[in-house]
Design a protein around this nucleic acid. Structure first.
Lengths: 348, 348
DNA sequence: CTGAAAGCGCTTACAG
DNA sequence: CTGAAAGCGCTTACAG
């Protein structure tokens, strides 16, 4: 290895015959505050540029006790929903001069715990988490360590935290009402495991509430929670069973985008025409929905707003934790929007 | 702010009445090497666990001069192609105990330069870059600073670097040949700006080579580089112009997934039936292609392999840079695969 | 206007 | 078997 050495503060100080203190102050824009002469400042800045000086963030972080880094945990960054979330979160972070570390939990609570620990070691200033944890112990750990965090997408009804979520209940209810308004009565609902995730629960509840209001009694037979491990087979079998028993519903409400993608493939295979034979409306809205024939009617989440609010609130918390302001929760619930396309037919 | 203080090595040492040195060695698994008694080791490990000790990575990084962190730069993480890349890169990194910082350059060279600088400040051990730079100055800077990096997806023909890419030329040629084999003669080609990106150039060249081999003379009129700033309008106008002049091609080869998505929307609007009126084959393969009717024939890139190879090679480089091994470039070119679906019709 | 010194939390020669 | 000490590169009281 060549004898290359990164340039440090003292290199600059030495060459200029001044102290590290001075160089540090100048480079951090505190030259004027400390009454350092213009000419000295200029010399420092110029040499720094010449030498291509870059402050070592480890040293700075160690000294200042903060990293200007935020951690984002989602289940899978290649899921278009989270990809968009991540993109916007990164945008807003970099606008505020924060760096972002993105991690995938794969819906695996153990993995998520490990990630949280790693992020803690990395001294992140805060975390934005779409959590897949089964209990809230690890979140309490964050509270103990006084690391600010914001839950997005999913929350724990039993634990009061800061969060930015969406009104899943209303979104699902609206979606189901749209089906109802088109004359459907036998409406099924698919959610995805793990069952403890509150979004799925809320969406199911919204579906049920819509039925209730229309005096359609909820039928257990039409509600399936699809195991994440084998969704295709499970949905396939469900449909087959309904067909076999001649109780095929005329419409299905799907509680997330993955379920819909699988159903679409299965319907193609089984030659079930959408929407003529089966109407569907899905939670989420992804590119494939627009390009599918028929285009899929979906509940769109305000992704950019989720991202923006979560980083804004998190940074607020980070700043607050250094002063001594009183403790108060930020809980933001955003509205969804039903976008009507071609996957719902009038029930004849 | 409550008087919370993170637990450090010395906290453990103090409580146990031993030195930091000892604690550090034990916790880093060097207890046996240094002949530290089993019982002492156990005590240390247990207390560390009890206190929930987490090594401060800033201190460690500062001391050891490495961060165990890798930077990944892509144009846009919400583009499904890069989302998948990022996902796999993260997977392989975490398998090797490296953390990943993902950044979006937005095809903006200035932004990319800033990102590279930030990553340098963060002391990343290496970078994986899908670069949008116009010249190679900043990459040379990396070389000077002796930070290993690997280019993926895109390379600079003028600068020898480590890279993992795909055989764009052959992929495009195969795609075009598929059109040719189906009897098409008037075949257009869309690439996307900026024009200096080598993938687009290579794909165009592959297209052209296929035509050449079939003795079809290349017609400038059928080759458009679509500006990234306003792709919809540009494609729309092109199609309209062709129609107006009665020179509509019977097939189009599209050099990336975004172009195809736009074209699909435009064809819907203009009621141009695919593949009856217009056959298309696209570079890349994304979810929306499968769900589109007709499903789109595409050139699929071995995304996982790109990711795997790039992190494997990068880590090799990182380790090598610490020893004194000889310098030699790793240049990996992977094959693509044409997946035939329904968007190409025989030309009658 | 400027500098010497301490200290953030680690790891690693070195010494015994 | 174990510890004292130095040092990574910063920032920030403190002193003059």
């Amino acid at each position: 290895m060549k004898p290359y050495k990164k340039v440090s503060l003292s290199d600059i100080a030495e060459k200029l015959g001044v102290s590290k203190t001075l160089v540090s102050m100048v480079l951090n824009g505190k030259g004027d505050d400390n009454g350092i002469s213009k000419s000295t400042q200029e010399k420092v800045i110029q040499l720094a540029q010449e030498l291509n000086y870059k402050p070592n963030q480890f040293a700075r972080g160690l000294r200042m006790g903060k990293s200007n880094t935020i951690g984002l945990i989602v289940s899978d960054i290649s899921n278009p929903f989270y990809a968009k979330i991540a993109r916007f979160v990164e945008d807003y972070c970099s606008k505020e001069d924060y760096n972002l570390i993105i991690c995938n939990s794969d819906e695996n609570p153990e993995k998520e715990k490990k990630i949280i620990n790693t992020l803690l070691e990395k001294q992140v200033d805060g975390m934005i988490i779409s959590s897949t944890l089964e209990d809230t112990d690890h979140l309490k750990l964050l509270t103990n360590e006084q690391i600010p965090f914001i839950l997005i997408d999913r929350i724990y009804p039993t634990m009061p935290t800061n969060y930015v979520i969406v009104n899943n209940f209303l979104g699902a209810k609206e979606a189901t009402q749209h089906l109802l308004n088109n004359g459907h009565k036998k409406i099924a609902c698919f959610t995805i495991s793990p069952a403890h995730i509150n979004t799925q629960v809320e969406r199911f509840l919204g579906y049920k509430a819509a039925l209730d209001e229309s005096f359609i009694s909820f039928n257990d037979y039409y509600y399936k929670v699809i195991p994440r491990e084998n969704p295709f087979q499970s949905i396939y079998n469900t449909i087959k069973e309904w067909q076999y028993n001649h109780v095929m519903p005329s419409a299905i409400f799907l509680a997330n985008n993955q379920l819909t993608l699988y159903l679409l493939e299965i319907c193609k295979e089984l030659k079930i025409n959408i929407p003529q034979k089966l109407s569907i409306v899905s939670f989420d809205d992804i590119e494939a929905f627009r390009f599918n024939t028929p285009a899929i009617t979906g509940v769109v989440q305000p992704i950019e707003s989720i991202a923006q609010n979560s980083v804004k609130e998190l940074i607020k918390l980070i700043r607050k934790s250094k002063t001594d302001e009183s403790f108060e929760l930020n809980q933001i619930k955003l509205d969804t929007n039903l976008i009507i396309r071609e996957s719902v037919a009038k029930f004849a």
